[in-house]
Amino acid sequence: MNQELFLSSQVDLKAARSLKERLIKALFFFCAAVSILTTLGIVGILIFETWNFFGKVSFKQFFGDTQWTPLFAQKHFGVWALISGTALTSFVSIVTALPLGLLAAIYLSEFASKRIRSFIKPSLEVLAGIPTVIYGYFALTFVTPCLQKIIPGLAGFNALGAGIVMGIMILPIIASLSEDAIYAVPPSLKEGAYALGGNRLATIFRVVLPSSFSGIGAAAILGISRAVGETMIVVIAAGQQPNFTLDPRVAVETMTAYIVQVSLGDTPTGTLEYQTIFAVGMTLFIFTLALNLGAHHLRRNVLKGSL
């Protein structure tokens, strides 16, 4: 009988525990679900408002025009003016950041002594922690005046200065992810290259970098993705003129900057002008989603080790 008692109490304990466990599990599930629901909600609203927008404005007007003047009397909805602004500033930023970041990563992983590493790595992290609004001022009040001394005809607001400063902003991402990729190259490959009479540089350029190509590619794409979605720097320093141009010396307006412009103004909700920001937001979202998926795919290759 004693034994029976013992057994039954044990069963009860088990039941209590499993109830508690189920509750905790449900709580964890709820927390995980919040982020998914938020994402779904955002995408849902984007799709809904974009749908409304395209009820009034045709696809052809949106993608077949290069003038963007939805806030004026003479309305044009050529989104290419905004896409070109985004593409231009992002291009300048990646052209700035990729060589610098890659060389920094090579230096950190292959050449730097422990002491220098322990100094440079945190400095890069500080760079990543600077609020982007400060980068914006930096672009407008320091970088652009400096560039104006070299490049005559550079406007006060321009894609070049904003792009370069955005490049500095994404430099830490690129350097750090590239360094991870280079670090992940097995030492046996480097030894193999040394044993074949390769010197340090030849080993890096012929064996190490090709082997870490996926990771470096992922770093570049994530960097571009950050630049495409970056708002504050381009709002402050690139101007707010939706020029359809690939000339980095003039002012441009990016998709993000336009959204800010409308959100800050006194555009009533529900109007066509209001709905444009959702159509633009949707376009922006598709861009960054595609970039992030691309980077994710490359990084998965790195993790799997199939280079």
């Binding site: 046996s188 490959l189 193999g192 090709p210 082997s211």
Partner: peptide
């Protein structure tokens, strides 16, 4: 070497 280490990208 001990473990075959052909260059994976080549």
């Amino acid at each position: 070497f001990q473990k075959p280490n052909p260059f994976p990208t080549m």
